[in-house]
Design a protein around this nucleic acid. Structure first.
Lengths: 194, 194
DNA sequence: TTCATTTCTTGTCATTTGGCAAGATTACCA
DNA sequence: TGGTAATCTTGCCAAATGACAAGAAATGAA
């Protein structure tokens, strides 16, 4: 496994030159996260800025009744960390767990800040990660308001089919804002249609 | 009207010293936005980083059927701009409109970047604005999944009672992810309870 | 393999919410 | 002030979704 994908990520934003991308990449360390292992546990301060190279992860919180609520999925190519906990240095409300064997590259909070300090271009990358995350959340928010559960399901299936091979329906259902029972019925209905 | 509130905002984060806060504040210019006027129109690139000192604004988009969907409210003390359009320099999908006469202080994208460049502490402030926005969206997302419309209504009423004096129910309903009819019934039910 | 556990589906019924339309109330403007 | 439009409420019924429970299917471990 090489760091090539990571270097390409930094370059792909057009915010960072090749030589800078290589400098940044140098500071990241390899990490293997076996299936079901937690990358982050609620109550801890998120301290790793992780690039997920391979595999799928899910982020989840607990509602007031103690039920798991999937707050997000991460798949290869994405930065995987809990924004609020990582930057504010506060205890995470969320868990991040590997859905299958995962591989990636990470740096710590301290190292990230060092890089931000020494490589101004990298700050731009960091900002773009935040802005992308923000935009993604807003899109999902809008889909919760304007789309039916069935439409949200189809959208997720179209954009992230791999998740369905690794996460149980219950997990996907709570991400979509419905129960697993409803999701099962939606699938039945869609199977009838197609 | 003085810039005092603005200076205090920069200081309050503890990321910026008083002298820096004053330097930053100096670059902001006063703006009056009369009721119903648009601070940002869909299709335009958001170019103003606005601190809302007084008044209420709403951000809204249009769904595929052309209905207005309230994506957010802004009240005094908050930075008011469309994150994605502003930082990515892309056309905004959203409108931002004054719900009543508003006053605030703004700088342009170019000026913001100049400040980010000359005052590293201000970058920290900029990042914290993004992180706060991200966390706020995630909280709202979670409430869409785990709470009933009635609970979301009560929560909004508790945290932002002022909005109810300035936005019509239809606007608030779409923010909560329900129709104005349902919101009206929820209000009736709550009135019965209390 | 075999057994236990988890996951998924399905049935029944209740609850929530929406769509539509009518009427009441309020706000705004000429 | 009067009139028009916007807003809010309400009734009726349909559709979507949830709660609960039972059973089927798949998974994983000994």
């Amino acid at each position: 496994m090489t760091k090539e994908t990571l270097t390409r990520l930094f370059q792909s934003t057009n915010l960072v030159s090749l030589s800078t991308a290589i400098q940044i990449t140098d500071r990241f360390e390899y990490k293997f996260i076996p299936k079901n292992q937690f990358q982050l546990t609620a109550g801890k301060i998120c301290n790793e800025y992780l690039f997920l190279e391979k595999g799928y992860m899910r982020a989840f919180a607990h509602d007031t009744e103690g039920n798991e609520v999937t707050t997000g999925f991460c798949s290869s190519g994405q930065m995987t960390f809990e924004v609020s906990s990582f930057f504010n240095r506060t205890r995470s409300m969320e868990n991040i767990q590997a859905l299958n064997d995962c591989e990636g590259w990470y740096i710590t909070y301290q190292q990230l800040n060092n890089l931000f300090h020494t490589l101004p271009e990298f700050r731009e990358f960091g900002r773009s990660v935040l802005v992308e995350g923000y935009a993604g959340l807003k899109t999902r928010m809008l889909s919760m308001i304007t789309e039916t559960a069935e439409e949200r399901y189809e959208q997720l299936f179209k954009t992230s089919p791999g998740i369905f091979q690794h996460a149980p329906l219950k997990t996907i259902a709570s991400y979509l804002g419905i129960t697993d029972t409803s999701l099962s019925r939606i699938r039945k209905e869609l199977a009838r249609k197609h």
